[in-house]
Amino acid sequence: MNFLTPGMQYMLLGTFLFSIGSLCVKLSGLHVPTTEILFVRGVVGVLLCWYILRRAGVGVFGKRKLALFLRGLLGFTSMLAEFYTIVHLPLADALVLLFSHPIVVALLGWFILRERLSKGSLVAVLISLVGVTVVCRPGILFGAKEAMDPFLLGVALLAVLLTSFAILTVRSLAKTEHPAVVMFYPPLFIALLAPLFAGEWVVPTVGEWCTMLGVAVFMNMGQYYMTRGYAIESAARISGVSSLEIVFAGMWGVMFLNEIPDVWTVLGGVLIVLGTVVLGRSARTEMVISPKFPLS
Rank of each mutant, 00 (worst) to 15 (best):
L27K: 15
L27H: 08
R41I: 02
R41H: 02
G21C: 11
V25R: 05
I37W: 00
L38K: 01
H31W: 07
F39W: 14
G29M: 09
F39R: 02
L23T: 14
L30M: 14
C24I: 07
F39T: 04
I37V: 10
T34F: 07
S19G: 13
S19C: 11
V44D: 00
T34I: 10
S28H: 05
G29Q: 07
V32G: 09
L23W: 09
V40Q: 02
K26Y: 12
L17G: 08
F18E: 06
T34Y: 03
S19K: 13
V44L: 09
L30F: 06
V46N: 02
I20C: 13
S19N: 13
G21Y: 09
L17D: 07
E36K: 05
P33T: 10
S22I: 15
V43Q: 03
I37N: 04
V32K: 05
I20D: 09
G29C: 07
V43N: 02
V40D: 00
F18H: 13
S19R: 12
V46I: 12
T35R: 04
C24N: 12
F18D: 06
I20N: 09
V44G: 00
F39V: 01
L23D: 06
G29F: 05
H31T: 13
S28R: 06
L23P: 10
V32W: 06
G29I: 05
P33W: 08
P33N: 14
L47Y: 04
S28V: 14
C24Y: 08
V43R: 02
G42T: 02
H31N: 13
V43T: 04
T34P: 02
V44R: 00
S28E: 09
L23S: 14
V43C: 04
S19H: 11
V44I: 12
I20H: 10
K26P: 06
S19Y: 14
C24F: 15
E36C: 04
S22P: 06
E36V: 05
L17S: 13
E36Y: 05
